[in-house]
Amino acid sequence: MRRVPVLSWLAALLAAAYFLVPLYATFKFSLQMKRGELSFESYRSVLSSDLFLQVLGFSAMASLAAIVLGILLVVPTAYWVRLKLPGLRPLTEFLSLMPLIIPPVVLVFGYVRIYGTGSVLPLTMTEAGTNLLLVIGYTVLSLPYMYRAVDNGMAAIDIATLTEAAESLGASRLRTVATVIFPNIRSAIVSGAFLTFSISLGEFVVTSLLSRPGFGPYMVQIGQDYAYQPAAIAIMAFAFTWICMVLMELFATARPGQGPFRRRKGKKG
């Protein structure tokens, strides 16, 4: 119909170069640890370090805890707002989006002041308290994404009918949410969970300012001490982000009980 879109191709090629050159360069760099040959030595060096596994384990646990906390907070709330309080939707939406406006450094500044030594609720006095604060911080940072994912999932199913059906069969409210609503939006939740995981695992600011032995601060330290290992970490982090995004996308598009590829948001216009 039209001629070959030269300009479009040019733009796409330039962008592809900008995106791929750093990845290629980083990968190549990461292979050069042994002089004069290409090897995976830097990867071996990173992966075999006890500290690496330790901080990764810590961050993974904290991220998982943040996911669970996020689900427990967001699912009932989004459900309740959609079902009973559509008028309060702007409020919950605003609150869930607030973390996008508040930079993490500001948020954690508030935390260390309010929940620090000498406050009413000195969470940072104990190890467990600080860990709890870290998990809460991760939950807050991922709140916008979790809320959006869950809310989109709920838009795709008919909550009102499902609830009525469950109630007419004698299910309690809690049971309705746990056994009817939850399974129906499971893929939306999982999709939000993967995003949360990818945000939290390498998080630096909150982790560092709460002095937690997480993966983010560890990476910064490696960056200061070594040359080739950081490149290996960058490649692994990119692969990890990629996997999280693919899984997220996969679960976000798969909606039980709906047409296979309905991706439009369920808003009536």
Binding site: S30, G202, A231, T241
Partner: peptide, 13 residues
């Protein structure tokens, strides 16, 4: 979503 410390490493390399 590829921001933060790993991005810095990639650009240093």
């Amino acid at each position: 979503n590829f921001a933060g410390v790993p991005l810095a490493f990639a650009f240093i390399a």
